[in-house]
Amino acid sequence: MTNLKLTRFAPTPSGFLHLGNVYSFIVTYHLSKKHQAKILLRIDDLDRERVKNRYIEDIFDTLNFLELPYDLGPKNLKDFKSSFSQSERMGQYAKALEILRQSKLLFACDCSRKKVEKMHPKGYYTGFCRNRKLPFDQNETSWRLKADMHQDISFKDLNEGHIVGKLPGILTDFIVRKKDGLPAYQLTSVVDDLYFGVDLVVRGKDLFGSTLAQVFLSEHLGPNAFAQNTFYHHYLLQDPNNQKLSKSAGATSIQFMRKSGKKKEDIYMMIGEWLGVKERIKSLEEFGRYV
Results as ranks from 00 to 15, higher is better:
85 S>L: 08
128 F>A: 12
63 L>R: 06
282 K>D: 10
117 E>N: 14
85 S>R: 06
151 Q>E: 15
49 E>R: 00
46 L>F: 04
52 K>S: 07
198 V>L: 12
204 G>K: 08
207 L>W: 08
154 S>L: 05
150 H>S: 14
282 K>A: 12
267 I>W: 04
230 T>Q: 10
108 A>P: 00
271 I>A: 05
235 Y>F: 12
281 I>Q: 02
224 N>R: 02
101 R>W: 01
258 R>M: 11
225 A>M: 07
225 A>Y: 12
114 K>F: 05
117 E>K: 15
211 T>N: 07
140 E>R: 11
94 A>I: 13
98 E>D: 15
57 E>H: 08
159 N>R: 13
217 L>I: 02
129 C>W: 03
68 L>P: 07
159 N>C: 12
208 F>C: 07
263 K>S: 14
177 R>P: 12
244 K>I: 08
82 S>Q: 15
239 D>T: 06
114 K>E: 15
211 T>G: 01
51 V>E: 09
87 S>G: 00
139 N>E: 14
277 V>H: 02
275 L>G: 02
79 D>R: 05
109 C>T: 00
230 T>K: 06
106 L>Q: 01
75 K>D: 04
104 K>Y: 10
42 R>T: 07
237 L>C: 04
166 K>P: 02
215 V>D: 01
103 S>L: 06
58 D>K: 00
245 L>P: 01
165 G>N: 05
94 A>W: 08
236 L>N: 10
260 S>P: 09
143 W>I: 02
135 P>R: 06
135 P>Q: 10
93 Y>V: 05
105 L>I: 07
192 D>C: 00
237 L>V: 10
24 S>M: 07
268 Y>L: 06
265 E>S: 11
50 R>A: 09
203 R>T: 09
125 Y>C: 07
206 D>I: 03
106 L>A: 05
2 T>Q: 13
189 S>E: 02
244 K>W: 10
222 G>A: 06
284 L>H: 11
177 R>W: 04
179 K>F: 03
3 N>V: 07
119 M>G: 00
231 F>I: 05
202 V>M: 04
255 Q>S: 14
208 F>L: 15
187 L>P: 06
